[in-house]
Computed example of a mutant assay.
Amino acid sequence: MSESRLPEEGAVPLDDRGLAYGDGLFETVLVRDGEALLWEAHLARLARGCRALGLPMPARDRLDSLPGQAGEGLRVLKLILTRGSGGRGYLPPAEPSPRLRWQAAPFSPQPHRWRAGVRVRLCRLRLGLQPALAGLKHLNRLENVLARQEWQDPEVAEGLLCDSDGWLVEATCMNLFWRRDGRLETPRLDRCGVAGTLRAALLEALPIAEVDAGPEVLLDAEAAWLGNSLQGVWPLARLDDARGSELKRWAPGEAHRSLQAEAHRLLGYSPSMAS
């Protein structure tokens, strides 16, 4: 895979706090021919994370220069910002010197999943509650790593996660949406989970209610979707429990296309690729 990064920035040292403690943030951005999609939303989330962790925000002109260096065609730009080195143990330095690293690689979405939908399963792992970090894309993703190890079946595209109180939160790397009684809904993310940039854009564009709901809500849903700012929106075609037994099926069709169409408009994906 071809990758690019800033030539003057070398390897991350072993005493980097991001490496040692997950003390930092990251963003993954879809870039088309040097133009970053949902760029302002990515920068807004990065700024929220910097405020929450007490990190200086990188200079705007430095960040704005990166998409243009990502290369031609469809690319995924990954930014990693750590607190840098220093401090004593968990105590961070009073004046941190953050490290910003980035790389860009070719990216291809999966249009067959846009059209046919995906099979997902419920995960056994429960997300811990931490409102101070809720919504942020911080570097400590061990819960997601453990959840993703729960299945090996390539037919299962994603796993759905609940928090320790049993409320739906997200998939391992995507946000969750459903339509119930004609109303669009998505899990509330004020106690844990990652508030995706595509989710934020859809909340602005469409009447989507943020709710507390357990996984049983999906059994009553007329349609359901997963989405993020790289893959776009996948309709759910089948839901399994944590043992792999089928709980619900949907037939992706017109009922699934409205939310998908708005998401793909925001990401510049052609509507014809999903039909």
Results as ranks from 00 to 15, higher is better:
185 E>Y: 01
186 T>C: 08
186 T>S: 13
187 P>K: 03
188 R>K: 09
188 R>V: 07
189 L>T: 12
190 D>P: 06
192 C>D: 08
194 V>W: 12
195 A>K: 11
200 A>P: 06
201 A>Y: 10
203 L>P: 09
203 L>K: 08
204 E>S: 09
204 E>H: 05
204 E>N: 07
207 P>E: 06
208 I>Y: 02
208 I>F: 01
211 V>T: 08
211 V>R: 08
213 A>G: 01
216 E>T: 13
216 E>M: 03
217 V>L: 02
218 L>P: 06
219 L>S: 07
219 L>E: 14
219 L>R: 08
221 A>P: 02
221 A>W: 06
222 E>D: 09
224 A>Y: 04
224 A>V: 02
224 A>D: 02
225 W>N: 03
226 L>I: 06
226 L>V: 05
227 G>P: 09
228 N>G: 14
228 N>W: 08
229 S>L: 08
229 S>M: 07
231 Q>L: 12
232 G>S: 12
236 L>C: 11
237 A>T: 06
238 R>M: 15
238 R>V: 15
238 R>D: 13
239 L>H: 12
239 L>W: 10
239 L>V: 14
242 A>H: 10
243 R>P: 00
244 G>H: 04
244 G>D: 07
244 G>M: 01
245 S>P: 00
246 E>Q: 14
248 K>W: 03
249 R>F: 05
250 W>Q: 04
252 P>R: 00
252 P>H: 00
252 P>F: 01
253 G>Y: 00
254 E>K: 07
254 E>M: 04
258 S>K: 14
259 L>I: 13
260 Q>F: 10
260 Q>E: 11
262 E>P: 00
263 A>C: 13
263 A>R: 11
264 H>P: 02
265 R>C: 06
265 R>F: 07
